[in-house]
Nucleic acid binder design. Structure first.
Lengths: 211, 211
DNA sequence: GTCTATAGTATGATAGAC
DNA sequence: GTCTATCATACTATAGAC
């Protein structure tokens, strides 16, 4: 028999990833989970804590896995932007262990975590996994020595934005794509399509440094 | 003397662009505008109508201007991805006529219009300016005949996501950048940094069609 | 651990006096 | 057109019985 606490987590993940954190009420969650309204506060203390519990379930799998991929790649003498970006793929797929549709759920959660002003989530991530984020940044830098740190900073966030947008608006976009091209696009296919786009964008010449 | 209706519009634009549509209450708006709470409903009928009025004020300047830029470029025999993208710049700057910080405001509003599930906004835009959007898409296609329509569809949305994210999270990101590099980044500089990134991403080889 | 009942707060919208 | 007062509704959170 599934415990109440787990039922809440599962329902919360689903609804948060579909509608965002703020737009999802505890009533929707407890209703979807088929548990009592008060049980959220009993098990998690507050909505904020529930949000962190949901995110942490994925972060704690994804981040160490990413760290390991980066370590492995770092042993090579040289690597390309694409190589570094490719380190994301396996850890993302590993999220299937957490939940069958874990990869998609996590990316969508990430999107909302940024676009809504969930300051506590960013802080939470950086205190726990800041070194992984840092390392990722430095390896991208290493692969693109011709770019200034500032340019790289912005391009990485452009890339993040591209990915998050594709995930958050993914459902609507896939429906439009289906209507326009009569061809279905899988949620994970979107991510694969993203990689060459992002890799080219990051590695592009910097007009500033050409002056 | 500034009319109540205008005071509401000005305050709403500011707050919507800072916190999003759903996160901004009518009470915040009327308080910022220093008018009575009931006046929003008197002048606009509903919050939804106010949102559309705010967006439309910018769209009605931006979209025709973009259309004209595209027309001008279309007279050339050939044009690059960058050429098409560059058509956005002048119309964006023209939004200064609407408001001194119009360009930034509009981009941020656009970001929230997408990331929040403002279905009515997307519908509103497409019925009024769908042909401009369509034209833009086709000219990007023209500049990249080596790419499938599907790939282009996704890359354009990746680009949109990159831009919207940079704007919506712009304030926070600029603060981080300032702390990291001790160098300020202007809001409009962000947009200029975006263009080469996006141009390279869009025009990149498509792994699928290389098979 | 689970429930009901409810406190306390915020929202969008409106009726009606002026 | 502008105001006050208020309705109806939604939310998070908690106290207290079982």
């Amino acid at each position: 028999m599934v415990k109440t606490k787990d039922k809440i987590i599962l329902a919360a993940e689903k609804l948060f990833s579909e509608h965002g954190f703020e737009q999802t009420s505890l009533r929707q969650i407890t209703s979807e989970a088929d548990v009592n309204l008060a049980s959220v506060n009993y098990h998690f203390g507050s909505k904020k804590s529930l949000i962190q519990a949901v995110m942490s379930r994925y972060q704690s799998v994804f981040m160490p896995a990413l760290d390991e991929q980066l370590s492995r790649l770092a042993e090579h003498e040289t690597y390309s932007t694409t190589d570094v970006l490719a380190c994301i793929t396996a850890p993302l797929i590993a999220l299937r262990q957490v939940r069958i549709d874990g990869p998609v759920i996590y990316l969508r959660l990430l999107g909302f975590a940024y676009s809504e002003i969930q300051g506590h989530l960013r802080k939470f991530t950086m205190t726990h996994f800041g070194h992984v984020v840092q390392r990722f940044f430095e390896m991208i830098q290493q692969a693109n020595p011709h770019l200034s740190r500032k340019t790289l900073f912005w391009r990485l966030h452009f890339s993040l934005g591209a990915m998050l947008f594709a995930q958050v608006s993914g459902q609507a976009l896939r429906e439009i794509a289906l209507a326009d091209f009569g061809e279905e696009t899988q949620a994970e296919e979107t991510f694969l399509k993203l990689l060459p786009f992002v890799a080219a964008g990051i590695a592009a010449d910097d007009p500033e440094s050409q002056i």
